[in-house]
């Protein structure tokens, strides 16, 4: 197996649960170990029901929301686009490949929509703590007043001029998805910003 490299720090984190835990007055930031992420797109009813059948999940159709089951979470990105990600890491490679191939075969190849592996397109960063929204408001024009209290809420917006997807996992706990090439810079910015919270 070739070495897996984090975009954020120059360390090999094969078999390490999480890296770069930053503790700063009620603020924890950590990179989540690479997990499978899939982008799925489609418009038809058949598309929605096929996804439901394969993954046992109903894709959210309400804007800025998500659905989740034991294994997978689905984030609404647009009326015909969703981001799916595995809730936790299992045997990297095998199980993920099965899910992806199954979806590809039944969605893409059957002309119901598209299934694209974006596991490495995004780096997933977990931020938690009471000061989390102060950190975000240092560089994000989005109004978190309602979002904060709404478990499962999703928003695509800008953080320090960088596109991000923010998912409210629990109160004062979010997962942030940022494109890999931007992640080191954003990570650095977040750590710098955290100094002033």
């Amino acid at each position: 197996m070739p070495n897996w490299n984090s975009a954020i720090k120059k360390i090999d984190i094969n078999n390490v649960a999480s890296v770069n835990v930053k503790h700063h007055s009620e603020l924890f930031i950590s990179e989540v170990e690479p997990i499978m992420k899939l982008n799925v797109r489609g418009k038809s009813r058949d598309f929605l029901s096929m996804i439901g059948k394969i993954l046992n999940i109903i894709l959210p159709t309400e804007a800025n929301t998500s659905t989740t089951n034991e294994h997978i979470t689905a984030l609404w990105l647009s009326p015909d686009e969703w981001l799916l990600f595995k809730n936790n890491v299992t045997n990297r490679g095998t199980e993920e490949t099965i899910i992806e191939e199954n979806l590809y075969k039944n969605i893409s190849q059957k002309k119901l929509g598209s299934v694209t592996n974006v596991s490495d397109q995004f780096v997933m960063i977990n931020i938690q703590g009471q000061n989390l929204y102060e950190l975000l408001s240092s560089g994000c024009p989005f109004n978190f007043n309602d979002f904060k209290n709404k478990k499962g809420a999703v928003s695509q917006t800008l953080l320090n001029h960088t596109d991000v997807i923010i998912y409210n996992e629990e109160i004062n706990k979010i997962n942030l998805f940022v494109r890999r090439s931007f992640s080191a810079h954003l990570w650095s910015w977040m750590n710098d910003s955290a100094r002033f919270i």
């Binding site: 647009s78 024009p141 989005f142 109004n143 928003s155 917006t157 800008l158």
Partner: peptide, 11 residues
């Protein structure tokens, strides 16, 4: 019309 009220910088 899809996401609701957002800051102009997102557009």
């Amino acid at each position: 019309p899809y996401c609701g009220e957002r800051d102009q910088s997102e557009f």
